[in-house]
Nucleic acid binder design. Structure first.
Lengths: 148, 148
DNA sequence: GTGCTTGCAAACAGTTTGCAGATAG
DNA sequence: CTATCTGCAAACTGTTTGCAAGCAC
């Protein structure tokens, strides 16, 4: 959907404009984020980053992720009882499909219409600024291996 | 929407049928849950329970909550970075409105239509078994006191 | 009496923070 | 040169677990 290379350059540019420094670790993390297709967790990113930088730490990953999050450049999918997943390719709000067995996360097809959002909030007096729609179920792989 | 007394009796009955014991603490917690209008957190329930049972513990609250959860009788709204909220009055799936300032949680008006859910999952091969829709924003109280 | 429940404390997972040394600009 | 970043360890929050004593049935 999004060209990884273009997104990488966009993020790099925005970070530089913010006065951030592009350390090798950070560059590698941006590469991982923009080329990831699987909504990785901080820990997964850490594992992948460690292949290139064996001494890197989880804290470094978290620090850059929260930096990007504050800039609105990464979507954070927090769950109550699992590690959060990150999406730096489509920082706009969109639905996700989450497999309850293997915990795979993929993007949903369409998005919620603004008037639907208003409908849900109607009568509440809420001033709605954002939303999140998650569908839970079984991914194709896990349906196939069900019961195993 | 739901009669607290009727819901209380329903939960009591289902727990008994499961072979669970109705201790005074548990009865009080069921009362709190069925009469709560505000989607309380485990900690809030604990505080309220402690007014009647000063020596009760958070663990007890969690244990009964997860028991109800396993029975499908309570909705758990987990967040990545705040305590989970519980709704034992409407264990069916329905949208919620969440205030980002005071963290108030109220029920949304309408529900997602099954064909909308299918639309989002279309082409993914996912077998969808559930969903969750949260709207974020400012509640009326917090809009009034904004900037304070 | 049996075994589920309580309540305490300790463990736990994911995330955040503090800080000294390293390094990008 | 200086401010940011790294990487380690320790702190932190919300939740879960182990276990001995208590209590519902």
């Amino acid at each position: 959907m999004v060209d990884p290379q273009a997104r990488f350059e966009e993020l790099t540019k925005k970070l530089r404009e913010r006065g951030c420094r592009m350390t090798p670790q950070r560059v590698a993390l941006l590469r991982l984020l923009t080329s990831a297709e699987d909504h990785p967790s901080a820990h997964q990113l850490y594992e992948r980053l460690r292949e290139q930088f064996p001494t890197t730490s989880l804290a470094t990953v978290y620090k850059t992720l929260s930096l990007l999050y504050d800039m609105g450049e990464v979507l954070e999918l927090g769950f109550g009882d699992h590690e959060a997943r990150y999406d730096a390719n489509r920082p706009d709000e969109h639905p996700h499909l989450i497999c309850l067995r293997c915990w795979k996360v993929i993007d949903g097809r369409s998005s919620l219409l603004p008037n639907q959002v208003q409908e849900v909030a109607e009568g509440s007096g809420f001033q709605v600024t954002g939303h999140r729609l998650d569908l839970y179920g079984l991914c194709p792989d896990c349906q196939a291996s069900e019961g195993a």
